[in-house]
Design a protein around this nucleic acid. Structure first.
Lengths: 261, 261
DNA sequence: TAAATCCGTGCATAAACGTGCATTAATAGG
DNA sequence: CCTATTAATGCACGTTTATGCACGGATTTA
């Protein structure tokens, strides 16, 4: 790796690496870019000041404390709300379908909520979801492989995309980091967004289950417009204004039943 | 000074372990992270000061006593016998290696036992193993995809085999359903055996960790002859007759230390 | 109470750090 | 074209940080 990189390019690559690996070491980066550690340190300092990473002795870590580290943790968070979303979402899964189940804690809840006697083919790029589903005996399970992106907790890179090219799911259940009538579904990570978009484009229909806190927000990377989402499952307490705005775009919005009942 | 694991990462892992195990021991952590107990004590002191745990004599406890996780998690933890096998097996994993980690409960124990500060590339076809490893920050993780065989719990079909063709692991850690001097390593499922044989043939060396109950038995499908196994890790109570027979075939047989110590 | 652990402190060391300065390469102005 | 300016980088230097080791004190256990 003896290419001359512009400052911005280098910092972009560092950010990328921070995402996919969950950490960077100053010495390692210096070696890989063939530049002095001083420069790397300057980069990291700068990026930390810009709020792009957390500087630590020896390197840097991603800022978001929840970044991929434990999907399990996120899943157990607000689990009752997500379970309600999941209960409603799984009603759109019908016998004989091929369903792509995307990464994300809400989708993990959906995986757990799929009736175990349903005979379907589930495709996923997320090992944790695959592990959860492998218990259920009537499913055909297909795993999308490749390099695992720790921030996403799933395979979303080149290899995974090549595998996904061949899919024609009846239903694609997308995870989303943001959902907005204008911005559509959005994701925090570039390659994740890319992957989602690819799978969605191959699918006959698209469903997304979105918690209220993500409504009306937009993450950096666009996945698909709201028009491309056939069914949007929201929580019962979703603000009516948002629901109306989304419905106007032609998406079927469904409210999950109250967590309490 | 190795500096393999950044301070924050280590403390994060300690926190996670506190959450999942309900307690941590200083000596244990020092061994797992390959650092001195002094440093662990410093970590625990610091974390206690930050209100992240309660420091006690010998280790630390979570602040909220009910934060401990479900029983299923503890139940799924490897038995002490397998953990002993795993502790010995992971010593053959060296920094910088690319290691293929096959399916199987013993291999899951091995996955959990790999020191979190080891910088290696792990390839696996088993979502459960991938899920377990995704928490450890210094690993590159590659997932082999394809149709999941639920009896095996891993991807072993045509697709997985095509992926595996491209691998050249330094070390292949095979699971086995039977191990015998005559029959070699054997497996219960045809495609699983096929897949194992393929990966083993691509690997520079092959290790298998086998519990005593599998010794001297043969499952229906041959994987590889004992000659092809570089290192065979057995339990301390393995019958000497078997050990001798296996050693005669040229395999390096290693006995795991007693579960008690 | 005695032995065995575990603990904290102080100290040593090596790695990582930041700063100031020099060098080089782009950019702008004349 | 030539010069002034600025940004990016590397190097030298002194500083800080993380870690291990040694030792004496504290705590548990038999």
């Amino acid at each position: 790796m003896s290419m001359d990189l512009l400052l911005r390019e280098r910092q972009f690559l560092i950010r990328e690496r921070l995402r996919t690996h969950g950490r960077v070491l100053a010495a390692e980066l210096a070696r890989e870019f063939n530049i002095s550690e001083d420069t790397i340190r300057r980069d990291l300092r700068e990026m930390a000041a810009a709020g792009l990473c957390e500087r630590v002795y020896g390197g840097a870590l991603p800022l978001a404390p929840d970044a991929g580290r434990s999907l399990t943790e996120r899943a157990s968070l607000a689990s009752e709300r997500k379970a309600a979303l999941a209960r409603t979402s799984v009603e759109y899964i019908e016998r004989g379908m091929t369903v792509f189940l995307d990464a994300g804690s809400t989708n993990l809840a959906i995986a757990r909520a799929i009736p175990p006697d349903l005979s379907v083919t589930i495709v996923t790029n997320t090992p944790l979801i695959a592990s959860a589903l492998i218990e259920k005996p009537t499913f055909d399970l297909i795993l999308i492989g490749g390099t695992l992106d720790r921030a996403v907790g799933a395979a979303v890179g080149a290899r995974a995309q090549r595998d996904a090219e061949l899919l024609r799911p009846d239903l694609c259940i997308l995870g989303a980091c943001g959902a907005d009538a204008e911005a559509g579904l959005t994701a925090v990570h570039f390659e994740d967004a890319e992957f989602k978009r690819l799978v969605a484009s191959k699918s006959r229909s698209v469903l997304a289950a979105v918690t209220t806190d993500k409504l009306g927000t937009a993450a950096p990377y666009a996945v698909v417009g709201i028009e491309a989402v056939s069914t949007l499952v929201l929580e019962a307490d979703a603000p009516p204004a948002h629901v109306a705005a989304l419905t106007e775009r032609g998406t079927a919005v469904v409210l999950a039943s109250e967590p309490g009942g």
